[in-house]
């Protein structure tokens, strides 16, 4: 007997199981879509999970106003291709309404402000399960995350008091006002994601492939030059061959010097790199437990 699944097919099957479990256990789930490869993968797996029916939940994109323009164009084409529903929450609105205050200074970022808009949109849409593309290999606080992660009525995460998850029995029961964060691709590593996207020939935003771009160098990280990043004295704009390893806001997503213009080139690069993908994320560098602190408050 030779019934073997490759590791990628086993991961795919696990994620599809989780996505179908979400559709069964929750009233009103939503996919948190950032435009990055992990949320693209999650959306693609959702298309697979419910084929030939349409994906039974919408995408929610929290738009900080500081997106790479390529991200938005790609998002819209994906929505059209799979006939998905899209909702967008605007951080700018929360700023204009005085609900949040923008950070000041050269390292100002709207990353933290997303939490308000995200929780606000979840409440307005009455979403009871929000699926994220977080992976346990990404970051040490995420290594402790469950597939089904309970959030209290304030959207907060209590990492010391999580429900145990055994076998493939997932407990999505909750009280009124509480919701869940669900992480269908928890067990994928960065390399798994790239190998799978290559194998399945999933279209990706051009930002992931090496291209010439205007950049500035700050604290050892290259940032894409844009109007949202005020330049410090002495900082100069250079043109470099770069690509993104993660896609977030232009203000906090580092770009990497790279020659990888194909997905095979990216796999080669990811497999041999010595720096984690979030190594270029200034939002994680603010303190040793920056991710855990934000997650407790309700971050992605």
């Amino acid at each position: 007997m030779n019934y073997n699944l490759s590791h990628l097919k086993e991961l795919e099957s696990e994620s599809i199981f989780i996505l179908r479990e979400v559709a069964s256990q929750f009233e009103n789930p939503v996919i948190l879509f950032s435009g990055g490869k992990d949320s693209i993968l999650m959306t693609y797996l959702a298309v697979k999970a419910f084929y030939p029916a349409k994906v039974p939940f919408p995408l929610l994109h929290v738009d900080t106003g500081h997106n790479f323009p390529e991200t938005l164009a790609f998002r819209d084409s994906l929505v059209e291709q799979y006939r998905l529903k899209l909702k967008v929450g605007y951080v700018q609105e929360a700023i204009d309404n005085g609900q949040v205050t923008e950070e000041k200074g050269v390292n100002a970022s709207r990353n933290g402000l997303q939490i308000f808009t995200l929780l606000d949109e979840l409440e307005k849409g009455k979403f009871d399960a929000a699926m994220g593309g977080g992976r346990r290999d990404e970051e040490k606080a995420r290594a402790k995350e469950r597939f089904f992660s309970h959030r209290d009525e304030f959207g907060q995460w209590d990492p010391k008091n999580q429900r145990p998850e055994l076998w493939n029995l997932f407990n999505g029961r909750k009280s009124m006002g509480e919701h869940f964060r669900v992480f269908p691709i928890s067990n994928w590593t960065e390399l798994d994601v790239w190998q799978y996207l290559a194998e399945e020939k999933v279209p990706l935003p051009n930002l992931y492939f090496a291209h010439k771009r205007k950049v500035i160098e700050r604290d050892g990280v290259l940032l894409a030059d844009c109007d949202y990043i005020p330049k410090k004295d002495g900082e100069e704009v250079k043109i470099e061959m770069v690509r993104c390893r993660t896609i977030g806001d232009m203000t906090c997503t580092g770009v990497w010097r790279s020659e990888a213009t194909t997905i095979e080139g990216i796999i080669e690069e990811v497999a041999t790199t010595r720096i984690t993908e979030r190594g270029g994320r200034s939002d994680d560098k603010r303190s040793e437990t920056a991710m855990e602190d934000r997650k407790k408050q309700g971050y992605f």
């Binding site: 073997n4 699944l5 490759s6 590791h7 990628l8 086993e10 991961l11 390399l191 190998q195 194998e199 796999i267 080669e268 497999a271 041999t272 790199t273 010595r274």
Partner: peptide, 13 residues
């Protein structure tokens, strides 16, 4: 260095 020689047929333990 992480190994680059990843074949597609590897399985999961």
């Amino acid at each position: 260095m992480k190994s680059t020689n990843h074949s597609k047929s590897i399985n999961l333990l």
